[in-house]
Design a protein around this nucleic acid. Structure first.
Lengths: 206, 206
DNA sequence: ACAGAAAATGCTGCATACAGAATACAAAAG
DNA sequence: CTTTTGTATTCTGTATGCAGCATTTTCTGT
């Protein structure tokens, strides 16, 4: 149950049901979710350690608010982590693993052409996560997923224009090609560029 | 109180009072620390998100056990993060900030010459943290401190020989010089080498 | 004597109850 | 009219009680 509760709260924060700065009322929120305060408190503490909420002593928890610098800083770290993941993945990944990423990529391109923004967005995230998983480095995956979770909220809000969108797809194309060639240098270079551009794309909305 | 409890448990895990694989008995441990189960449970959940303990459904929490690969993986990520921190710090750090690191470094060398291993070790960690802080990137500092905390337990156990010790000090010397020169490339190169060697140094003890 | 099953013990997980602290509101004084 | 102080309400923080599950031990049957 703990896991489901944590996931539920995470989703509520990411999807904006709990907007930044909102105080997490234990009584009210617990009743709303149909659980007692005890497990709810534990879940909140967990999320606090993940950096999604902030604990204010004797005043409870509030949904953390991110400044533009925070987002930039997160993307900087994310970029570095993904560059590393890319390099490692070129060595450690199995052909089957790479094929799976390719499948995700093709599916994503289909969604892009169909204009299904939400599905595209989710597959996009999945691809990045998948590449990190190919590196077979658990701590790396942990850190990456933490940052990605924190950023999800931002990207959910940030609605990029179509011209930026196509550029992003083009970069993804390069990525998958570099990965299939197991070209470390090229893959990490593309990832670096991709995430540097990602900042430009979301910049306006923060 | 929450913070002090979390810190206390962290220290107990790092210092080996709670060795890997140990089950965290809520009743017993709570009585030992003089607190009730409720705040203790919350602290444990917090530490679970930090990756120090593992939650087993309906069987409580156990202190996480790290394999040699885990340690290697952590050091790989740590290396990447510190390389990034070094590069950023060369740009963002104030002269006063660099001077503080220099002071820590000099103090560390004194402790090294005096053979005070524990103090040396703590200052060593402090220096790495200080450099990361100079980068003024909160998420980066978060990730770094998490990994460093997880590794503390290992390094606490790993007693390196004196010949490796002096090599480490020499690398630190290079580090501080590169930092004072604000030489990005050199600093990140030294940090990379330093942490690659760190793996060799602790390799035997895991 | 050994194996299987059932009961008992001990632990986690959840709910609830109680105490302390902070805040908001109201009333009185300057 | 504004400010300050006192009180009441609400929410956090902690403790305790109860139910469910896992493990271990014991009892019974072969």
């Amino acid at each position: 149950m703990h896991d489901t509760l944590v996931s539920h709260l995470r989703d509520m924060i990411i999807e904006g049901d709990l907007s930044p700065g909102t105080r997490l009322h234990e009584g009210q929120l617990g009743e709303q979710l149909g659980v007692s305060r005890t497990p709810l408190r534990e879940a909140i503490k967990y999320l606090a350690s993940e950096g999604l909420v902030e604990l204010v002593p004797s005043r409870g928890a509030v949904v953390k608010r991110f400044s533009a610098k925070d987002v930039h800083d997160m993307l900087t770290v994310l970029r570095t982590l993904e560059e590393l993941a890319g390099k490692l993945a070129c060595d450690t990944a199995t052909d089957a693993g790479i094929a799976e990423v390719r499948a995700l990529h093709d599916e994503m391109v289909r969604r892009y052409k169909a204009g299904e923004r939400l599905q595209y967005y989710k597959l996009n995230q999945q691809i990045h996560s998948a590449i990190v998983l190919l590196a077979e480095n658990a701590p790396l995956a942990d850190m990456h997923s933490m940052l990605q979770t924190r950023l999800k909220r931002i990207r959910f809000i940030g609605h990029e224009g179509p011209e930026k969108w196509s550029a992003s797809v083009a970069e993804h194309d390069e990525m998958i090609i570099a990965l299939e060639a197991r070209d470390k240098a090229r893959l990490s270079e593309v990832l670096c560029r991709h995430l540097t551009n990602a900042w430009e794309r979301v910049r306006a909305s923060v």
